[in-house]
């Protein structure tokens, strides 16, 4: 990837109020870090020649404000997020990300429905909610970055499973079946496969309040805005989040095989096609896709044989 520094510097302005180029919300141009998402303000955009914007890591000890509460991102390898929760405010999270908590902080289980579906899909069965006043800290389990996504009222993001670190009370959480799937045949048996996981998480700011969503992203994160009708092929395992307006489909690509067709799936590439309009984000660490042998049905898509 050819990377060059953008020339806009810290401005990110449209001639008026300063808009953070990462969370797209009005922010403070005089601050070192965006108070809404934690991204550094005083850095140039790093944009590849193809248009991917590298999300700068949240600086060590940067603070993010949400409601009357705030959080602080600490560390650089596997950053933890320390929350200082105000009275009557809270965050929810998956229990396995809990790192420490104040002895007086109120913790409760927060169960979401479809228990068996979630268990079958390997997703967290029970979420926890911490409410203020008090402190709680969370961290992921792989080297990478914490990404702050403040969500304006009514806005929604689709997030790949297991990327979610925490969300404020103002963010509604649900999930939906993954938009891409396959049915593969192996001998006499067939089974369904899910390149994105069986479900995708959906986060939406409910009511008239903005909310804060925090993700843990292994590796580095790159963001791109797709215009209406514009599409890009990405590794299914590399997807982190998209706007809800982005379309998903599968694309199979077969390199020129010089007449050899035996077990062509061995060198086939399975892509996830993301179609605009909307924002898409990918990470540099991803799981290698399985080699699905004989695909007999799918959620729909295209193929290219070179």
């Amino acid at each position: 990837m050819s990377v060059s520094s953008g020339s806009t510097g810290a401005s990110g302005t449209g001639g008026g109020a300063y808009i953070c180029r990462y969370c797209r919300l009005p922010s403070d141009a005089q601050a070192v870090n965006c108070p809404n998402c934690g991204a550094p303000v005083d850095v140039s955009a790093v944009v590849s020649g193809s248009g991917w914007v590298e999300q700068p890591p949240v600086r060590d000890m940067a603070r993010i404000q949400f409601g009357r509460s705030r959080c602080q991102v600490a560390g650089t390898l596997v950053p933890s997020v320390d929350f200082a929760l105000a009275a009557d405010e809270g965050v929810y999270f998956s229990h396995h990300t809990l790192l420490w908590t104040g002895a007086g902080t109120n913790l409760e289980a927060w169960s979401k429905g479809s228990f068996f579906n979630r268990m079958y899909a390997g997703m967290p069965l029970v979420l926890m909610r911490a409410s203020g006043p008090g402190q709680v800290a969370l961290s992921g389990d792989r080297p990478g970055e914490v990404v702050g996504l403040p969500i304006p009222p009514g806005r929604a993001f689709l997030v790949r499973e297991h990327a979610f670190l925490a969300a404020s009370d103002a963010v509604g959480y649900t999930w939906q079946p993954a938009p891409v799937w396959l049915q593969v045949q192996d001998g006499d048996s067939s089974e369904y496969e899910y390149p994105l996981g069986q479900y995708v998480d959906v986060f939406v700011a409910e009511g008239d309040r903005p909310g804060l969503l925090l993700l843990h992203c292994p590796g580095n994160l790159f963001v791109r805005d797709l215009a209406p009708g514009q599409s890009v092929l990405v590794q299914p395992g590399g997807l982190v989040y998209t706007d809800a307006s982005v379309g998903y489909s599968l694309h199979l690509e077969y390199p020129a095989s010089q007449g050899l067709s035996w077990r062509s799936y061995n060198y086939r590439t399975m892509w996830l096609r993301l179609a605009g309009p909307g924002r898409v984000a990918v990470r540099s660490v991803f799981e290698r896709p399985e080699r699905y042998a004989n695909i007999v049905a799918s959620s729909g898509g295209t193929q290219q044989r070179w």
Binding site: A74, G75, V78, P79, L99, W100, T101, A103
Partner: peptide
């Protein structure tokens, strides 16, 4: 230490709850 390491000094009787894996 795996990931980042943090240290805190507790006063006498002061308590904190830590995830055992952390």
């Amino acid at each position: 230490g795996y990931g980042n390491v943090f240290e805190r000094t507790l006063g006498p009787g002061e308590k904190i709850l830590v995830e055992p894996g952390g």
